[in-house]
């Protein structure tokens, strides 16, 4: 694609995503184990349990190792004077363009895991859509929010 955005998101994002991957995996294991116990009680066939465990192992690998690293490698963004350009995706790569004139407001949000690593997400709202740039350094997110809202204010609004 033409002149793709260049800026990467924070390396610590990888850690954060791995941690949330661990949580997802834990939930999946809980479901799998419950299912296996139920199957065991009702004397269900063994191969179902084996498949369930296999699926849980694969999902664990995907959520904790593969997905976060692909996602991080892919994520690029660029905030230019007139537009915000993002590139993301694991299987489906999507590139989004938001003109500065269309920006209504900008939020920074920070969950407990993000806070621990001093990260924050920036969410850009237009009148119709919302776009998230996840896991930036706290200071960078703050700066970006100021920057975008300043630029957005300059642009006239004709929604």
């Amino acid at each position: 694609m033409q002149t793709e955005p260049q800026k990467r998101i924070s390396v610590s994002a990888l850690k954060v995503w791995r941690i949330s991957g661990v949580i997802k995996a834990a939930i999946e294991w809980a479901i799998a184990v419950t299912a296996i116990i139920i199957i065991h009680i009702f004397n269900g066939p063994l191969w179902v349990s084996v498949i369930l465990i296999a699926i849980a192992i694969i999902l664990t690998y995907l959520h904790i190792f593969l997905f976060p690293s692909i996602r991080w490698k892919r994520w690029r963004y660029e905030v230019r004077e007139e537009e915000i350009d993002t590139l993301e995706g694991i299987f489906i790569i999507s590139r989004t363009l938001v003109p500065m004139v269309r920006v209504q407001h900008v939020d920074t949000v920070q969950g407990p895991i993000l806070r621990k690593y001093k990260l924050a997400s920036v969410i850009v709202h237009t009148a119709a859509t919302a776009h998230e740039i996840p896991a930036l350094e706290e200071s960078e997110a703050e700066e970006l929010r100021f920057y975008i809202s300043k630029l957005a204010r300059v642009a006239e609004d004709d929604v």
Partner: peptide, 16 residues
Amino acid sequence: KNKIQSLEIRESYFQR
């Protein structure tokens, strides 16, 4: 153009 709020282009592995 001036009423489009945002534009997204996508490609999956197979599309690429």
